[in-house]
Design a protein around this nucleic acid. Structure first.
Lengths: 244, 244
DNA sequence: CGCCCGGTTGATTAGACTCAACGTATGTGG
DNA sequence: CCACATACGTTGAGTCTAATCAACCGGGCG
């Protein structure tokens, strides 16, 4: 079995963790009209940046803050006893995550790219307007179930089906429902995709190549995919063409 | 790909769903000393039985009651668009489950054997003693993360490793930490195990046979396993020998 | 320039699936 | 009581998928 061992740089402790720069600029505007209660909940705090390769937190760490990813890419991972890295999920733009149970982080959050983040502390939730607090709580309740549902699907899909499924879902989270010509930024490496799908790098490559040569997708580069046949892609993912 | 289609009999609606018999006997004693707050939380209600093959609820159903399984076996499953059944988890004795988010069930709970269950309604939680309410809430918070962690492990394990892992974890939930000579009742069918691990029946059979012929386990019948070499089994499961 | 890293491709192998057959326990009707 | 049917578990043979091992490509960078 192919195992990818990886050295994760951990952000140092408070008060000013290495890799976390505090922006003094006014908070950048979120591209969302009108501002949702969920995003508004995070507007009180300035955003921080996290350098690529740094871990925001590591599984087992104490902590229960809630994070909003404004830009960049985060992998939520867990390391097996034998060292094999398993990526439970990726967080992309405007994703909210906490991954905490009983004051402890259950997964590692590592930045795959430089990220901009905002956070609210769990105790602050009660000080927020009711609609914002509700929106955050709803997102947190959904968090483990979303990850669970995706992981379960991948467990029961073969390589090509899993790759198509991954593309459909990622595209959906980036840009909403896919259509002919949708562009998907595949910012994570092939290793990351493999660690997410339970496959090897080579198999991921070949799966994508097959989609490309069958003209279901096109690619201007390894990390830039264009969806040519959305219905075909959904069909190969094991989803009906009416899937949103 | 091998697909197991299955007809699930759904329990009919209130007031007296088919397949649910209301016991008039005094509640049977739980074998647990002293009674934990978690179990006590359910003692106010009489227990119900659910016949084998019946669904307690189906994914998408409204409902958020919390269930305690006193005896029997429940499969928590999800059906893919193509009809393939995926078992996210099994519930065994004294297991607590709800599987609800936003008032809706996210998975189907089907009885694989005749089951005895108790339930508390979500709104009743606030009427319970604080320690009991806390225990139930803690169990519910943990629920999706537990399922998630197991599913993620299985996604990244090959057949034999997954089967060993499944045995270790099931044995642990039935009887606590395993030791030489531990007995494991494997009450679910081979199809159910396959639908849980993302394998075929034949592969499950062969994996168990290999464990048997290597004298890691023994079996007096298809559903009665004895663990001969706990450390070997954990090693094959990808777990250290110090795993609880 | 030469090295390294990430991505890709090819050849081979190992592992899981498919298909088929058979065994065993259980139940049913004659 | 037996004949038969059914469901579940097991085993074997052959096929196919994905992993492994190896090589190569291209870009970024010291």
């Amino acid at each position: 079995m192919q195992i990818h061992l990886r050295q994760i740089k951990r952000t140092a402790g408070p008060p000013h963790p290495a890799g976390l720069d505090h922006h003094m600029d006014p908070p950048p505007r979120l591209h969302q009209e009108p501002a949702s209660p969920l995003l508004s909940a995070f507007s009180a705090h300035r955003s921080e940046t996290l350098a690529a390769g740094r871990a925001l937190f590591v599984e087992g760490d104490p902590g229960s803050d809630i994070h909003l990813l404004e830009s960049g890419l985060i992998a939520l991972s867990h390391i097996q006893p034998n060292g094999k890295r398993m990526i439970a999920s990726f967080v992309v733009g405007n994703g909210v995550f906490s991954l905490s149970h009983d004051g402890m982080r259950l997964l590692t959050a590592e930045a795959l790219q430089e990220c901009r983040l905002r956070r609210v502390h769990r105790v602050e939730l009660s000080h927020l307007p009711a609609d914002q607090a509700e929106a955050v709580k709803a997102a947190l309740d959904r968090e483990p179930w979303d990850i669970q549902a995706e992981t379960l699907m991948h467990l029961h899909k073969d390589a090509d089906e899993g790759i198509s499924y991954f593309l459909v879902r990622l595209a959906g989270r980036l840009n909403g429902p896919i259509s002919r010509g949708s562009r998907v930024r595949l910012d994570m490496s092939r290793v990351d995709i493999a660690d997410h799908l339970g496959l090897t790098v080579e198999t991921v490559c070949r799966g994508l190549k097959r989609l490309r040569s069958d003209r279901v997708i096109d690619a201007t580069g390894p990390h830039n995919v264009i969806i040519l046949e959305p219905d075909q892609l959904k069909r190969r993912a094991g989803l009906g063409p009416d899937f949103d």
